[in-house]
């Protein structure tokens, strides 16, 4: 067991964990930050996506030791002072979910996408989001939500 100080959503969080434990496991089971979801543990579904220094990573494939020096943003850290981000608001406006279990990962992935490419084409959205699974099949609405967020909510 090693002690780590993680920078999560702007706060310093002290946690003891084996260095090789996944960031996902630490977030969910040691820090009770359960907004980040477990879907497969193999980087195949995107439910566990978080931002490390603004870039999207599968937190099930990142060790806590590797994340210790990065600024970590989870789904819980996007909203500021009770105001949803444009991506979060767009998912609400489009009703872009059914069960909502994939939603955290979808929103975090889309946030990183729009940070890198503020005006993606539909093809670019599909290519980038393809690693995230929505088993309920809400994909067309999710694409619409990302477009809406890119267009500043005017879609």
């Amino acid at each position: 067991m090693t002690e780590f100080v993680l920078q999560v959503n702007g706060a310093s969080m002290r946690v003891e964990a084996p260095a090789e434990e996944s960031l996902l496991s630490v977030l969910r089971y040691r820090l009770n930050l359960t907004g980040t979801k477990y879907g497969c543990g193999e980087g195949e579904c995107g439910a566990c996506t978080v931002l490390l220094n603004g870039k999207a990573y599968r937190s099930c494939r990142v060790s806590v030791a590797a994340a210790a020096n990065a600024g970590i943003t989870t789904i819980e850290g996007l909203e500021r002072h009770g105001v949803l981000t444009p991506v979060q608001q767009a998912f609400v406006d489009e009703g872009a979910m059914q069960c909502g279990y994939c939603t955290s990962g979808m929103i975090v992935e889309a946030t990183a996408l729009l940070e890198e490419n503020p005006q993606p084409t539909e093809e670019q959205i599909v290519a980038r989001m393809n690693g995230n699974v929505c088993r309920c099949g809400t994909y067309p609405r999710i694409v619409a939500a990302v477009r809406r967020a890119a267009e500043g909510g005017r879609a």
């Binding site: 969910r28 089971y29 009770n32 930050l33 359960t34 907004g35 980040t36 979801k37 477990y38 989870t74 789904i75 819980e76 996007l78 909203e79 949803l84 979060q88 608001q89 998912f91 609400v92 009703g95 979910m97 909502g100 279990y101 939603t103 955290s104 929103i107």
Partner: peptide, 27 residues
């Protein structure tokens, strides 16, 4: 009518069964 409680799903607040935490909980 939009999905009720939709906000909790976009903020990560909604507690799915696997998110439930109890005092003194083990694994």
């Amino acid at each position: 009518v939009p999905k009720t409680e939709i906000r909790a799903f976009v903020t990560g607040e909604h507690k799915f069964p696997s998110d439930v935490v109890r005092p003194g909980m083990l694994f």
